[in-house]
Design a protein around this nucleic acid. Structure first.
Length: 991
RNA sequence: GCCGAUGUGGUGAAACUGGCAUACACGCAGCUCUCAAAAAGCUGUGGCUAUAACAAGCCGUGAGAGUUCGAGUCUCUCCAUCGGCACCA
């Protein structure tokens, strides 16, 4: 099937590509040879290395024209499984096509790739297959990079990032230190999510339906002391920017919902016979219908009762303590609604209404939500209603339904909740007001009396950052018990805690063999004295390192800032590519060192040498400020919507924090990247790391998500081997809209492959035209005889427009479809020539060489290898006879010292840096149009006519009326109305 | 329960601003080439009615209403599927 081209061409016979060979085969392109050939040439000529350092071309070290940076980023994969998933390839291909398109549009496109290899995902997989995570990282890195280099993406391999490389996580730790110094990192005892299977705590965002995001175990609540980042401080800014951002809408909505801003009021209720008060948060203070208060079992008030600080009877105290304890232990099922509770016997005063209400405790009230205390208004809140029903508390209607309903609220259906229409009743000074107005007036009243204050609450919680695991960056903190005793510490509010001095970073993750998480919730590193024993940076006495590691999402929250600065460590290095070697052989592989590493010997010096010896930039931050000024923010970010409230939110938070601390400075002389930004919106644009975010769809198989358990995971390798990366790329994009994903089916893959071979034949046939006695002009004239030449020229011009528009919107599926339509048209024209017995054109194709060149350019972002091969043939027709020999060596001297572009020689420029074809507006206009003729909105005929005819509207209308197919409908009827849509349709409304 | 998305042939899907519904492809059927197969190519392919054939007619975008000369597209009410959030006060 994958027949390579027969090259045994005797001098005078036509080239092999469009001839059947002796065995009757027709040519198919040899994807193996072509893809290998160009992958090598692109690599050798550094075609895909972005001129990061102010327009220095890496292949020549010459300055090219002014830099036009375009940062095209895709989410880096976490290499947890055996290899690259077709879903990864789908995402990368869609992103890469756009990057390639932008490059042809004249931008200097930077398209990096890396591995998100630290974290629970990778560690769990390593545990499962029983391989040390450090060894596993080395293997997956090799495998992933090998696979990734085959998919035809324009990755800049000179600037990869691996999160587990000490050169990288040194800076992740640096980021943690900054967080601490700025007061955004703190330790707190809190009720946290704990996964008993992964044996670690999880962030709220990592709990899905009450289950662990990774292993699907039921997550428990535990009261533990952990590290947090104060993301909530940024809630308002994270929310505020969303509106103006060019992001996929559903992702913005998901973030908005996750931040979950709610406006309401906190009302203070004095507890009778005590000095205590309970504060309730509510968005709907229906105080005249308030008949009780419910507080969470974790509420401080409950603790005070249990401790005896609030006087209740002994029995009560015991009952309450037991209930609180039971709640803490019990795992609640998802969606469990059955109410439980216990009465404290205490009362609080509802000062608005002037009566006392009982105080209850129930676990339907969550400590973290609002104030952990709810004012029970059972007639106007369904949960309060259910609670009141269960415990026989009074239900008092204070809102009349829109239909005048004043009956007793005795079913959930009758509960009128906040947001519904209604009128206040039984509410003294509120009577007669609409529901919403009544609530506002109540708030005014409460504030005026000084009983409470309007506040906003957020669903967003602080980011739980510590993990009791092994495979992550050790949190760079030191605890000194001695300092703690005397209340000393780096921060006043955290006695005993010191950040690791920046000069001592990284705190290297040592290779240990007992890396499995323990049942006791204690981190693996906590068992290694040689790791955690350290001198206090302040007093010098024996202190202890933090043994938790940080969350993976911290690694990925800033990686895009690092990419452009990799390889710019020494900005004038004659060979920026030297970085790559050190990445692939990260010091981790040097595992003989074992525990020696914990003393920060070789790894540290390695990290330091790459980090501290800086040419023209003082390294105290992880990126080159000048490079960052030029290339960031990321202009286009492509990734999955599943990261809506995780990675995408964290990255925004980290970016804003870094900017506030002055580490990201875009002011001053605007570089070309910034010059494109509208000055008015510059500041808000700089406040976001990703100018545009595009959420791609998911590849599914047989109607369901691919997963190992279902056994429907597709490995791209075998498809690349059979059909080639180009064919797979096109198939993946042709499945459906990139924004929506699609259903992967083998059979459809075959069709795409067939089409690419058709394109190959059409293009190579057009080359033959230049070699045959017929010149381009003659060829064109011949075709014109029956009009197909002109038809094709017009169709091609329209195609350029259509494909360009589709590229802009990443509608690759329709771009491909319209290219198929075009090649069908070309095939038809050729067939016509054959039928007419025109021997010249039988041998030739229907496409002139310059037309074939346009077609190849349009195809280039989608099928980069094949397009490049055809481009070479089109520009060096004499090379045809030798092209498919495997003599790639002859292209070695392709790099010329006299030019500034890679791959540019006197006679060859890579198609991928050719300018995107222009639309010729002058021939875009049709002079012939098809008009639909309708009777009462139903199409009865179509009329093909010239534009000139249509201009004379009245004449055209009568022309349509007299058409035989129409006339029969009009006979004996009156035309009530005639609607003319110029150039499109005519509608006669009759009778 | 709330938020979001999606519903179009046997299948993946087009129709972007209301204007010829089903582009493009898969599959299927028939044919050409061939000793044969593969490859390649050609023709047909929404449903129903109907015809020797050429025609022709009606129905048709999850269901039902509405707006409009005209609705896959806009409005309303449902139904189904898939994602996300969820006792959020």
């Amino acid at each position: 099937m994958k027949q390579s081209v027969n090259l045994d061409t005797s001098k005078n016979s036509p080239p092999a590509h469009f001839q059947e060979d002796s065995s009757g085969r027709q040519a198919r392109y040899d994807h193996r040879a072509i893809e290998a050939k160009w992958a090598k040439i692109w690599k050798d000529t550094k075609l895909n290395e972005a001129p990061i350092s102010s327009g220095i071309d890496p292949s020549t070290m010459l300055r090219i024209r002014p830099l036009r940076p375009y940062y095209n980023l895709m989410m880096f994969p976490y290499p947890s499984a055996e290899g690259l998933h077709v879903g990864n390839m789908y995402a990368f291909t869609g992103s890469d096509i756009f990057g390639r398109y932008m490059r042809m549009k004249g931008y200097d496109v930077f398209e990096p790739i890396g591995l998100d290899g630290f974290g629970i995902h990778s560690e769990n997989f390593a545990l499962k297959i029983g391989r040390h995570p450090m060894d596993h990282a080395v293997i997956t890195e090799k495998n992933f990079y090998a696979q990734l280099s085959k998919i035809g993406a324009m990755f800049d391999w000179s600037r990869t990032v691996e999160t587990y490389n000490p050169n990288y996580y040194r800076w992740t730790q640096w980021l943690f230190v900054q967080m601490f110094k700025q007061g955004l990192a703190y330790r707190a005892k809190a009720s946290v999510n704990y996964c008993p299977s992964c044996k670690t705590v999880l962030a709220d965002e990592q709990v899905i339906d009450g289950l662990c995001e990774r292993c699907k175990s039921v997550v428990e609540k535990r009261l533990l002391e952990q590290w947090f980042f104060r993301i909530t401080t940024y809630a308002e800014r994270l929310l505020g920017n969303l509106d103006g951002m060019d992001w996929t809408e559903k992702v913005k909505i998901a973030q908005k919902n996750w931040i979950g801003k709610k406006e309401g009021i906190e009302i203070h209720y004095p507890v009778k016979d005590t000095k205590e008060e309970i504060v309730c948060f509510t968005t709907a203070p229906v105080n005249f219908g308030m008949t009780f208060i419910v507080i969470s079992p974790q509420h401080e008030f409950v603790a005070k009762i249990v401790r005896g600080e609030i006087a209740v009877s002994k029995e009560k105290s015991k009952e309450i303590a037991e209930y609180a304890q039971a709640c803490a232990k019990r795992k609640k099922e998802v969606g469990e609604k059955e109410k439980t509770g216990v009465n404290t016997g205490l009362f609080a005063t509802n000062r608005v209404a002037g009566w006392d209400v009982p105080i209850w405790i129930s676990d339907f009230v969550v400590k973290e939500v609002g104030t952990g205390a709810v004012q029970g208004c059972p007639a106007h809140d369904t949960r309060d209603f259910e609670f009141a029903r269960k415990f026989g508390l009074p239900i008092k209607r204070v809102v009349m339904g829109p239909d005048g309903d004043m009956s007793e609220v005795d079913t959930v259906g009758k509960v009128i909740v906040h947001g519904m229409n209604g009128t206040m009743v039984n509410s003294e000074f509120l009577n007669g007001l609409p529901f919403e107005e009544g609530l506002q007036k109540t708030m005014d009243f409460v504030e005026k009396k000084g009983w409470g204050k309007r506040v906003s609450t957020y669903h967003l919680r602080d980011w739980l950052i510590s993990r009791q695991r092994y495979w992550g960056p050790p949190i760079p903190m030191i605890y000194c018990g001695k300092c703690a005793k005397v209340g000393k510490g780096e921060k006043n509010d955290m006695p005993g805690w010191y950040s690791v001095p920046e000069k001592d970073l990284p705190v290297v993750l040592p290779r240990i063999e007992d890396y499995k998480p323990g049942d006791d919730g204690i981190a693996p590193l906590a068992k290694h004295k040689e790791f955690f024993n350290v001198a206090c940076p302040s007093c010098g006495s024996a202190a202890r390192r933090e043994t938790d590691v940080s969350d993976t999402f911290l690694d990925s929250s800033w990686y895009f800032l690092r990419y452009p600065s990799v390889g710019n460590i020494k900005s004038q290095s004659p060979n920026p590519n030297t970085q790559q070697g050190s990445n692939l052989q990260s010091p981790i592989t040097n595992d003989q060192q074992g525990m020696k590493n914990s003393k920060n010997t070789s790894m540290l010096s390695e990290a330091k040498s790459s980090g501290l010896e800086i040419g023209d930039w003082k390294l105290d931050i992880p990126w080159n400020p000048e490079v960052t000024r030029q290339w960031l923010p990321v202009e286009m970010y492509t990734g999955g919507a599943e990261h809506s409230v995780l990675h995408l939110l964290y990255s925004r938070f980290i970016w804003k924090a870094l900017r506030d601390w002055g580490y990201l400075d875009f002011s001053g002389e605007a570089g070309p990247r910034l010059a494109r930004q509208d000055p008015a919106s510059q500041d808000s644009a700089w406040d976001e790391p990703f100018s545009t975010f595009f959420a791609h769809g998911l590849v599914i198989k047989d109607g369901s998500k691919m997963s190992k358990s279902k056994g429907n995971v597709v490995n791209p390798d075998e498809y690349i081997a059979t059909y080639g990366a180009d064919a797979l790329r096109i198939y993946l994009m042709f499945m459906g809209p990139f924004s929506q994903g699609g259903d992967f089916r083998d059979s459809a893959m075959e069709g795409v492959s067939r089409w690419l071979n058709r394109v190959w034949r059409i293009v190579t046939t057009s080359i033959h035209n230049t070699q045959s006695p017929i010149s381009n002009a003659q060829h064109f004239a011949l075709l014109n005889k029956e009009g197909s030449g002109e038809k094709i020229a017009k169709a091609l011009n329209k195609l350029v427009k259509k494909v360009g528009e589709d590229m802009e919107h990443r509608r690759y599926n329709t771009a491909i479809a319209s290219m198929m339509e075009f090649t069908n048209l070309v095939a038809d024209a050729r067939l016509l020539a054959l039928q007419q017995g025109d021997s010249a054109r039988q041998e030739g194709g229907a496409l002139a060489v310059d037309q074939a060149q346009v077609l190849v350019k349009l195809l280039a972002p989608l099928a980069p290898h094949l397009a490049e091969e055809m481009w070479e043939l089109l520009n060096q027709p004499s090379a045809i006879s030798r092209q498919s020999s495997d003599k790639t060596g002859e292209l070695k001297e392709i790099k010329s010292e006299t030019t500034h572009y890679p791959l540019r020689t006197t006679n060859y420029i890579s198609v991928h840096i050719e300018p995107w074809p222009e639309v010729d507006e002058s021939i875009l206009a049709e002079d012939e149009v098809t008009v639909a003729v309708q009777i009462n909105g139903k199409t009865r005929a179509t009329i093909v006519t010239s534009l000139a005819t249509i201009k004379e509207e009245s004449a055209f209308v009568s022309l349509c009326q007299s058409d035989g197919r129409i006339k029969k409908y009009l006979d004996g009827k009156t035309i009530v109305k005639t609607i003319v849509v110029p150039g499109k349709l005519i509608n006669f409304v009759i009778e």
